[in-house]
Nucleic acid binder design. Structure first.
Lengths: 247, 247
DNA sequence: CGCCCACTTGAACGTGTTCAAACGTCGTGG
DNA sequence: CCACGACGTTTGAACACGTTCAAGTGGGCG
């Protein structure tokens, strides 16, 4: 039972380090509490001091910050295999909230248990650390979009990123991936009103680069979309670069 | 000699963990290569695969990404005691550049050496990991500013952040801190043109909240500035929350 | 003293926002 | 099976924030 749950995590980490038997065992024997959530539910909220992290097994999550009652900035979207709140292992007070987008299956892991594992197994620690660094790399790239790119480029870039990430976990088929978010959520992630998001979307559609409807993103012209969004996947650090230990 | 150089780092880490004698020794005996840089010089560039990290001892640094030849997004400013490229320990290819703002003194530490320390001393690893998580928390807060706040609020928020960080390392005096950046750099960090940055700045000055001239930031009305920028310091995670290990 | 660089100002323009209404689609219940 | 309701998407039009271009000002340093 618990074996199944950390599988996704182990698979992810093994793209970076070759885990030894004892390392794999340590991860497999981590107590994981399974829990299902409906759509649009907060999992943890800004200001909380959670005692566990959660591994996303199925579904889509997002992280957000509210600002001044009416506005929110979506900070990230998360897909299966990720641990969206791994940071809470070291930063005790949450500075943002985590919520489901779709109905989701989560595996909760006690900080204490995780802490013992990262203390005993430096290579696991390194691989997890690396995950949080990629998280930060994605934030940086979003900052570039928010600060420097016009609406259509921002959207195009976002689509490229999500496609690349979803493809990497095997969720792409026929040039399409599931992306079950509304235009309003898209706008809140990209710092755009839903109205303008809609119009910029028509722009991309008009050039026959993508279609995005009913939670499905289909890329018609990858080259064109990547060019429109100035997308360069380096920041996702997907090329394993095998082994995080230097030299 | 090398003792002096890692002092700033040790002091920083000790606000979070109580280091044992052997842990402190390990840090003190880290080989550090000192090097001076002039103003406005690249230290490492996007695409590089550096073999070392650098600890900032004196001066100001910034990280940036260029986009489309003419625009750049500044991702972060760094102040003494920080390791701006710690991430390169695990993410081999740099996805952005690091440069000096003012003439600076840097201590370079080989990845290999640092890797041995974090492998042997999990608590040091945890404290450094935590630093990179705070880095990410700052990115998130900047995303909120870039996506949701109007120019004056963005600037006000930024000033509050820099003041808080500089104060924490003892660089504040009489409600003022050194902040030797131009309005153009400020704009590039906040996603604003230098012209508009200038006008928004006049706005804040007109309300007698701050003055910012000749590289010096003086806060006249902290409450007012924080309100204007909707600033809440939680995300800086400066309250030590003593000991990163859970429970 | 003079130059360079940063800051400042003005004015036209453009991207994106806001408000408001209409449309479409899907799921529910009569 | 159709009617209804809810929610997401689409459209229009006025407006605002921020950009761009261009020229001018001012201070620090060689």
């Amino acid at each position: 039972m618990t074996k199944v749950t950390t599988d996704a995590l182990i698979r992810k980490l093994e793209t970076v380090v070759d885990l030894s038997a004892s390392e794999r065992d340590a991860l497999l024997s981590l107590p994981v509490m399974l829990r299902d959530f409906g759509a649009d539910q907060d999992i943890v909220r800004e200001g909380d001091r959670p005692s566990h992290c959660c591994l996303l097994l199925e579904g889509f999550l997002l992280r957000y910050k509210l600002v001044g009652e009416t506005r929110r900035q979506i900070l990230a979207f998360h897909i299966p295999g990720e641990i969206p709140d791994l940071q809470s292992l070291y930063l005790k007070t949450l500075d943002h909230s985590l919520a489901t987008v779709t109905p989701s299956k989560l595996g909760f892991i006690q900080h204490q248990d995780l802490y013992h594992v990262v203390t005993a197994f430096p290579r696991i620690a390194g691989a997890l650390w690396r995950e949080t660094l990629i998280d930060a790399a994605i934030f940086r790239e979003w900052m570039v979009g928010l600060g420097q790119r016009r609406a259509p480029a921002r959207i195009a870039h976002f689509f490229c990123e999500m496609f690349a990430r979803l493809e990497a976990i095997g969720m792409a088929a026929d040039g399409a991936v599931p992306l079950p978010i509304t235009q309003e959520e898209l706008g809140d992630a990209l710092g755009l009103s839903s109205v303008h998001t809609n119009r910029a979307l028509q722009d991309l559609r008009g050039k026959d680069l993508v279609s995005f409807e009913r939670g499905k993103l289909t890329i018609h012209n990858w080259g064109g979309l990547a060019a429109a969004g100035e997308f360069d996947a380096t920041y996702l650090h997907q090329n394993p670069e095998r082994r995080p230990e230097p030299a």
